[in-house]
Structure formats: C-alpha cells, structure tokens
C-alpha cells in the first residue's frame, strides 16, 4: 500500500514517447498479422492485439496526465471488445458449419 502512494518510477523515468513507439510497434504487428495470415481465427486475434495496443496507449496517457477519463475509456473499449468477440466467433463458427473451412481465401464471393 505504501508503494501505491508514491508516484510510479515509470512515469518519472520513461518518456511518454517510448509508450507511443511501443504501442505503434504492437499495432503494426497486429496489422501484419491481419494481412499475412489466412486463418480467420488468427486474423481475429491480430485484431485483438491492435485493440490492446490502443488500450495500452490510452492507459499510458491517462496515467501520465493523472486523468481518470482515459482509463474509463479503456474499460468501455474492453466491454465493447468482449461483445465483438462473442458475435465474431459465432460468425466464424457459422462459416465453418456452412463451408467446412475458415480459410479467408475461400470467402471471396464479395470480391468481384
């Protein structure tokens, strides 16, 4: 409890730029995952990775500015992400039930 009263070392020693770079790297890893993989579930997981990169950046800004609104926003993003995952996985299961695969290369009926 004593530890929580003090200003955390990270805020004093790590510049906010480092968090911006870290979150950008995490976001780009998610983008590469979406672009290079064909398994629909792994694409979905990469989207989750991107969402978490944004969450981390929001939390970092909120902590550095000592403003609780950013962390409330992260909380709402997590709630929306949970709902999104439930519906998305239901859609993936339905796709698998209809065409027996979740390879997104086969789902190209909307392409032309």
């Amino acid at each position: 409890m004593q530890q929580m009263q003090q200003i955390p070392d990270v805020i004093k020693l790590i510049p906010l730029n480092f968090y911006v770079l870290f979150s950008s790297a995490l976001f780009c890893i998610g983008i590469v995952g979406v672009l290079t993989r064909r398994n629909a579930i792994i694409i979905f997981m990469s989207v989750e990775l991107m969402l978490n990169a944004v969450n981390l950046l929001l939390a970092a800004f909120s902590s550095y500015r000592a403003d609780p609104s950013g962390q409330i926003f992260v909380f709402f993003i997590m709630a929306v992400a949970a709902a999104e995952v439930a519906v998305g996985l239901a859609i993936i299961v339905m796709i698998y039930r209809n065409i027996q695969t979740i390879d997104v290369g086969i789902l190209n009926k909307l392409k032309w």
Binding site: M4, P8, D9, V10, I11, N55, L56, A59, A60, S62, S63, Q71, V74, F75
Partner: peptide, 10 residues
Amino acid sequence: HYVLLNAQFL
C-alpha cells in the same frame, strides 16, 4: 505494464 503505470483496476 498497467501495474507499472499504477493502473491497478485496468
């Protein structure tokens, strides 16, 4: 990272 940022709830 959230712990390091003192965001225990998150």
